[in-house]
Amino acid sequence: MAQPQNTAEQSVDQKTIVSMRNVNKWFGQFHVLRDINLSVDKGERIVVCGPSGSGKSTLIRCLNRLEKHQDGDIFVHGIELNNDVKNIDEIRREVGMVFQHFNLFPHLSILENCMLAPIWVRKTPRAEAEEIAMHFLTRVKIPEQASKYPGQLSGGQQQRVAIARALCMQPQLMLFDEPTSALDPEMIKEVLDTMVELADDGMTMICVTHEMGFARRVADRVIFMDEGQIVEQNEPEAFFNNPKSDRTKLFLSQILGH
């Protein structure tokens, strides 16, 4: 009912895809997100980092309502994220997500994993859905695995399938929650390469990751979180070479220190 006005009313210009204003969230008594303000433009690539438990996952999970924020406004793609089921559906259609532990559906083949959402959410004809799925599987370089099951693939391959599965919905925005941290070192590279290609194609991305090489290479902006707050954000060069906040310095020294 309210959709048509959403974009008009919200006076953020068309190029903004995510805007969070004064967002707060609690888990019970625990104040996990504190006064988050963030806006992301179309085509921007953002890397989020910070110590464990600082609320990075919670932040990006709020963007597609896997977690519910309790205070403040979130607009994604011009639609307000609230209790309205229609809004949630629409946002989830436009936002793809890749999880740390892949979360592929073990009882479906790779191809079926990729076709599930296009068929049941976008109502795409089967042949077309298959075409889309094969297209993106080719893009992540594993078309030959299409008929296998997730349990038969290596971790790196599984994560690339997960990326392809999200891409099959042709989302406007991709969220990555530590996509490489469950992988062995030799598999990290294949997943990062895929992500770099995606970035080079102009996809809007928000990545939670500690891969600083990746951040330097593709990020437009690095966001540092601590204790549920955004403590510092900057272009990668400035962020890494010239951190301003003491907490950032400490964090960087810890992860780059050895």
Binding site: R21, W26, L38, S39, D41, V231, E232
Partner: peptide
């Protein structure tokens, strides 16, 4: 916060956001 500050590069939080009690729907 001025709405342009977060898109601008080089944002640093100077003062900690307050730790607030949760809304009544939570606890």
């Amino acid at each position: 916060i001025p709405s342009d500050i977060d898109t601008q590069a080089g944002y640093v939080r100077i003062e900690d956001a307050p730790l607030l009690p949760p809304p009544p729907s939570e606890v």
